[in-house]
C-alpha cells in the first residue's frame, strides 16, 4: 500500500505499541488458558514448554495484560462513550454484516460495534483479573467456595472474550485498509470517509 502524506493519522506510535503488547499477551493467554480449558486444547501447552510451564506463565502474562490494558482503557475511554447513534448503528448491525453499509448512520472515530467491543473487553479483563487471582493457587489461598466461583467465572468470561476477539480481528481483516492503522497508524482519506465520516470531517475540515 502506497503511503500518501494526505493519509490520516489514526493512532500514535505509543497507542499502537500499547495495543500490540495487549494483543500479544492475549494470544499467549488464550493459548495457554485453553490448554486447561478442555483436553482437546491440552497440546497447546507444548508451545510454552509443557503443562507445568503453561500453568506457571499464564497468570503472570495475565497481570501484564491487565496493566497494559489499563493504558488502553485510559487512552480510549472517552472516545468510546456510547451515544444514541451508536445504539442505532448496533440495532442495524445485520445490514452492516450483510455487506450493505451505505444506509448505516454516520460514525465518528468509532462505530457502535467498536465501542461495544471496547466495553466488553474492559469488563472481561476486569472479571478475568479478579477471578484469575482467586484461582491462582501458587500464591493465594482463598476459601474454596470463592475459588470455585472464580473458576467458573474465569472459564466463562475467557470463552466470551476469545469469541469477541475473533470477531475483532476478523472485522479488521474484513474491512480493507484497516489493519494498517495498527501497523503504521494511518488510514486513507477514502477509508475514513466511507467508514467514519464524522471523524473524516473533523480531521480534514471538509464535508
Amino acid at each position: 500500500m502506497i503511503r500518501d502524506p494526505k493519509d490520516l493519522q489514526r493512532y500514535t506510535a505509543q497507542e499502537r505499541a500499547n495495543h500490540w503488547v495487549v494483543g500479544i499477551c492475549f494470544i499467549l493467554l488464550a493459548l495457554s488458558g485453553l490448554a486447561f480449558f478442555h483436553p482437546a486444547f491440552f497440546p497447546l501447552a507444548q508451545i510454552f514448554g509443557g503443562g507445568v510451564w503453561a500453568r506457571i506463565l499464564h497468570p503472570f502474562v495475565g497481570v501484564l495484560m491487565t496493566l497494559s490494558f489499563l493504558g488502553l482503557f485510559i487512552r480510549f475511554r472517552a472516545l468510546n462513550a456510547m451515544t444514541p447513534t451508536d445504539r442505532e448503528w448496533l440495532s442495524r448491525i445485520g445490514e452492516m454484516a450483510s455487506g450493505n453499509d451505505h444506509g448505516m448512520p454516520e460514525q465518528g472515530k468509532y462505530n457502535g460495534g467498536q465501542k461495544l467491543m471496547f466495553w466488553v473487553m474492559s469488563a472481561s479483563i476486569l472479571l478475568l483479573f479478579v477471578s484469575g487471582i482467586l484461582i491462582w493457587r501458587a500464591y493465594f489461598g482463598f476459601p474454596v467456595g470463592l475459588v470455585r466461583l472464580g473458576a467458573v467465572v474465569h472459564a466463562a468470561v475467557a470463552a466470551i472474550m476469545i469469541a469477541f476477539i475473533i470477531v475483532h480481528v476478523y472485522a479488521a481483516i474484513w474491512v480493507k485498509g484497516t489493519v494498517r492503522a495498527m501497523w503504521y497508524g494511518t488510514v486513507t482519506r477514502a477509508w475514513a470517509k466511507q467508514h467514519h465520516r464524522a471523524w473524516y470531517r473533523q480531521m480534514t475540515g471538509k464535508s
Binding site: H38, F41, A97, I162, I166, Y170, I173, W174, K176
Partner: peptide, 26 residues
C-alpha cells in the same frame, strides 16, 4: 459447548468472508 461455539465463531467469520467478500473502500 463453548468449544463448539468458539469454532463456530471462527468458521462463521471465515465463511462470511468467503460468501460476502471483503468490505472494500469504494
Amino acid at each position: 459447548l463453548a468449544t463448539f461455539a468458539l469454532a463456530a465463531v471462527a468458521l462463521g467469520s471465515l465463511f462470511h468472508y468467503v460468501t460476502k467478500g471483503p468490505n472494500e473502500v469504494s
